[in-house]
């Protein structure tokens, strides 16, 4: 029977919501046990959070100074060791999971199923190819461990609070390489909601016109309590940093409300938002492709319409 190991993603001592989403996919396997593995330097606070996720059987922790930063070359040998007793290893399909999971799969000598959208059976999954323009059903070899990354936008986070899974400390005998070293993480400091887990997202595109003009997007997002995203065009033009990019090669998100402002809607952008609950498009070009998938469209000048929206909101 199936035993699933879910690899916890965390940053700054906090569990990322992508972990609870991967647990949802693990629950869909209908196996016997779901264990969450926390690799960090200080594991305690992260492990306590993970133990609260419903459906989790045990939380396993490996506390080592080498695990302070998420270096794939360092984490993968440890995960591969722990994976020995499991039928499945699930990792969030974030840049963290995309980096580390294939390294684990190769160490185990098995294929990886990337971006799992649905679990059809213990070894049968659906995943997107061609930027989401086709969905394939894949069968993994039932004689091998399944390593899979879980597409966060396809899974709601497993509920949280009722559970209190036991936390166990693991000692892993794995030689860790020193050939890869972490230098730094440059991130914009922001008090706004996290783009990947926010229930509302306001994104700006090339139509916003400049870095300075992007203030109107930030201000409106703050007004409605939304995270802020951007199209690739806006990132490439230098209006905003790359971590704000929404789309096929940026973040794939599924907020309840997505507002695309001054975004024409290239296919690569639409790939990143098509699981959103409600999509609103505001664009001066009534023929823009974004209107083909928007639930509500409003044609006009964003610099006139956004202040009007704020006024109506009171």
């Amino acid at each position: 029977m199936s035993k699933i190991l879910v690899i916890a993603e965390h940053l700054g001592g906090k569990l990322n919501s992508s972990t609870a989403r991967a647990v949802s996919a693990a629950i869909a396997v209908k196996g016997d046990a779901i264990d969450v593995l926390v690799l960090a330097d200080n594991v305690d606070a992260i492990a306590v959070e993970a133990a609260k996720i419903d459906g989790v059987s045990r939380v396993l922790t490996v506390a080592r100074p080498e695990n302070a930063q998420p270096l794939a070359a360092v984490l993968a040998p440890q995960i591969a060791k722990v994976a020995a007793g499991y039928s499945h290893v699930f990792v969030p399909s974030t840049t963290f999971g995309k980096d580390v999971a294939p390294r684990v799969a190769a160490l185990l000598g098995v294929a990886q199923v990337s971006d799992v959208m649905s679990v059809e059976a213990a070894h049968t999954f659906k995943r997107p190819i061609y930027a989401g323009n086709a969905i394939i059903t894949v069968e993994a070899d039932a004689n091998h461990t399944v390593v899979a990354t879980i597409r966060s936008a396809s899974w709601a986070a497993a509920s949280n609070g009722a559970n209190s899974a036991p936390i166990e400390v693991l000692a892993i005998d794995a030689a860790l390489p020193t050939h890869t070293r972490y230098v730094e993480l440059k991130q914009g400091s922001s008090d706004r909601p996290d783009l990947q887990s926010a229930s509302k997202v306001v994104s700006g595109g090339r139509g916003v016109g400049s870095k300075e003009n992007f203030e109107i997007i930030y201000k409106f997002a703050d007004r409605i309590g939304a995270a802020v995203g951007a199209s690739r065009a806006a990132v490439d033009a230098g209006y905003v940093p790359s971590e704000m990019q929404v789309g096929q090669t940026g973040k794939i998100i599924a907020p309840e409300l997505y507002m695309a402002i001054g975004i024409s809607g290239a296919i690569q952008h639409l790939t990143g938002i098509k699981d959103a609950g409600t999509i609103v498009a505001i664009n001066k070009d009534g023929e823009a492709p974004i209107f083909e998938i928007a639930d509500f469209g409003l044609v006009g000048d964003l610099f006139k319409l956004i202040p009007e929206l704020e006024q109506v909101l009171g």
Binding site: V110, A111, V113, T124, P128, G132, N133, A134, I135, I136, T137, V138, E139, A140, D141, H144, K274, I279, F291, E292, I293, A294, D295, F296, G297, L298, V299, L305, E308, L309, Q311, V312
Partner: peptide
């Protein structure tokens, strides 16, 4: 190791409605 058993077109979002103003 992986066998593709089926290809399907993605679920389409249908076009919504156009609203006339901010209100």
């Amino acid at each position: 190791h992986l066998k593709i058993t089926h290809y399907a077109a993605p679920a389409k979002r249908s076009k919504g409605v156009m609203v006339k103003d901010a209100a």
